[in-house]
Design a binder for these strands. Structure first.
Lengths: 228, 228
DNA sequence: GAATAAAAAATTGTAGACAATTTATAACGC
DNA sequence: GCGTTATAAATTGTCTACAATTTTTTATTC
């Protein structure tokens, strides 16, 4: 949530960004231990820098810091996962509505170009790019809606979503369909705020529905359940 | 945005909390310089601890860290201020709507008790308590709506609002009227989500309207303007 | 006397060393 | 052989001293 840009970026933000990206792109899996010395060597920096970056990542919920034990990539619970999707519906429906009010031809062009890119990546079978562009579409809406604060919140929500998808995805594909994105863009182009909100709501529902968030247990499954 | 509670609170969070509170309660004014050594002495801790706390506060936008120059209490621009209020309307209207869906008699009792407290503080002329309780009312709605994530965002927004009020308040009083809070509670009690959203929207509009955010200039007023 | 330049002081940034804690390994008793 | 305890290794947490930068003060010159 770094709204107030510092004139010159602090040195630890590069490490922060690289770890952030690795988690958002689902390379670093939930539960992975992040040893300070190890990271310090990889990035060729002092341990203090790594420490700062990890502290910032904890603030974003991507990393869990256990005192005297170290840093781990977070493992959001089912309850937390549902909450994140609720927050996304809350914020993103409002954001598309706002975008419908302030929309410009340039904005629509950018959105359409983005959807085209998504289609191309999918057609080319480039799953890495497909995943990245899917998230970027949602961020683009946030950007065009013109609220830097909510854009930042959205960025945070998307990275948490990545973590959640890795943890709870089922066999079936878990990308947002580009067709749903295209429909949303069409509604925005028409200035139909209600329709855009409705589509966005269902789109996020769809995303959540593809995951296995059905268990009632709060805690990670008990040993007894696994042996029953 | 500390969702994942650590088992034992890290030692720097107490310093963080005390500075946070001083800003939220409007004791520390925007632009105030925060020297590390000075703070270290006040709290009787090492400078490293202070550093951690300041980094966390920067993340929340309450403190601006200028490289090699030090930490200052943030001075949000008019543009940022407007954005914060937009974000508040976005989130808080959805939050009251959600609360209407999941509301319980206990929740209503807590809300009514809170409004009573607000009235008492105001009647007693206790401005410090009045300010604190005003913010707490909004947080209480967030808590009862049952979204830990959005509660955290709301907490962040409220502390930024405090900063904005200090910077842009006019002579007239800038508290939320407790009557408006009472009306919102009444709407929630009736389960009237639309009405509650509408009231909350206007309540925040009202808050924003009491401030002097009319200037068109982005930058802090130019010397020429002051000498014209 | 004002402006510039140099030196000194104050403040922040960083690194390395040491202490505390946890995890892994090995020895021991049953 | 299994569980327990003691030792050793690895890892994190913290502090102190030093380097880099900025601000203030002082001296100099026009």
């Amino acid at each position: 949530m770094n709204l107030a840009e510092t004139t010159t970026d602090a040195p630890h933000v590069e490490i922060y960004n690289r770890i952030w990206l690795s988690i958002a792109e689902r390379k670093l899996k939930p539960g992975t231990r992040l040893k300070e010395e190890q990271l310090a060597e990889i990035f060729s920096v002092s341990r203090a820098r790594v420490r700062q970056a990890l502290a910032a990542l904890e603030h974003d919920g991507l990393v869990t810091l256990v005192p005297n034990r170290g840093a781990f990539v977070s493992q959001p619970s089912i309850e937390e996962a549902r909450d994140i999707f609720f927050a996304r519906r809350t914020i993103e429906t409002q954001l598309v509505a706002r975008l419908c009010e302030v929309v410009t031809p340039t904005a629509i062009a950018r959105l359409e170009a983005h959807v085209t890119q998504e289609r191309e990546a999918r057609a080319a079978g480039d799953t890495k790019a497909t995943v990245r562009l899917s998230g970027a579409f949602h961020l683009l809406i946030g950007e065009l809606a013109g609220s830097p604060y909510l854009w930042d919140v959205l960025r945070d929500l998307l990275s948490r979503t990545s973590l959640i998808i890795v943890m709870y995805q089922t066999r079936s594909q878990t990308d947002c369909g580009p067709d749903e994105h295209a429909e949303i863009v069409a509604a925005i182009a028409r200035g139909d705020a209600d329709r855009a909100k409705h589509l966005m709501n269902h789109h996020i529902d769809h995303l959540e529905g593809q995951l296995d968030l059905e268990q009632d247990t709060q805690e990670p499954s008990d040993l007894r359940d696994l042996l029953a």
